[in-house]
């Protein structure tokens, strides 16, 4: 894209922010689902599955996302499939986020007393209903703060995907600087501003959501 005036520059960053938001949104949703399924499996202590999930969570929590994404983007095509950078970013971020979400939700589930589960069984709730009406609402209410933090963390982590050529904010900044060094300062400012424009409303929205969800716990 040719840069004729500052409007073009802003336009590029708006598009880049769009990519960032898209990847972040998709991976937050998938990560939430992964985290939910994994934490329920951990809660019900399904023998083999539990060990696998434990390994998955610890592996993703203890390795850098940069190496993970390099492995999936450059390493896996050698033996398995070749993914494009968009799919690859969403895949890695969802798995990474899923590990963090699982940890957060499992910590919330552990707090629910065993009494409640026995009571649910006594009044004849099926397993699915127990999860739906008893465990889920409480878990989400307890761990909403951690879930929100993870979501913001994932959004920030999209910037790492620059290295696999996902056209997001940092990638565009690098691309423009390498062509037009004289634009360095405005680009730095635009880069920070676009992140703030994404993240400040997000963290405000999450704090509102947190107050709404924890209504049950605190009353008003």
């Amino acid at each position: 894209m040719e840069i004729r005036n500052s409007f073009d520059l802003v336009n590029i960053f708006i598009h880049a922010s769009g990519v960032t938001i898209e990847v972040a949104f998709l991976s937050i949703i998938i990560a939430f689902i992964i985290g939910l399924i994994c934490s329920i499996a951990l809660y019900y202590k399904i023998t083999v599955v539990k060990a696998i999930i434990y390994m998955y969570v610890e592996f993703f929590r203890n390795t850098p996302s940069l190496v993970q994404v390099y492995f999936v983007f450059y390493g896996l095509p050698k033996i398995f499939v070749k993914l494009d950078s968009f799919t690859c970013s969403v895949l890695v971020l969802s798995l990474l986020g899923g590990a963090y979400m699982c940890e957060a939700m499992y910590a919330g589930m552990k707090v629910i007393s065993k009494n409640q589960r026995e009571l649910a069984m006594a009044i004849g709730l099926s397993k699915f209903d127990t999860i739906r009406y008893l465990i889920l609402p409480q878990t989400i209410s307890i761990s909403i703060a951690a879930i929100n933090n993870n979501a913001i963390f994932l959004t920030k982590e999209v910037s790492v995907m620059k290295i696999i050529l996902l056209p997001e904010i940092v990638y565009q900044a690098f691309a423009i600087i390498s062509l037009r060094a004289d634009l360095t300062v405005p680009i730095m400012i635009l880069m920070i501003v676009s992140y703030l424009v994404i993240l400040i409303p997000m963290s405000y929205g999450f704090s509102v959501l947190e107050r709404k969800v924890r209504f049950a716990e605190f009353g008003d």
Partner: peptide, 15 residues
């Protein structure tokens, strides 16, 4: 908190 260390690295190094 809000801005990834990667951005700070780029800003300080190039900017």
């Amino acid at each position: 908190r809000l801005i990834h260390p990667l951005i700070w690295l780029v800003v300080l190094f190039f900017g």
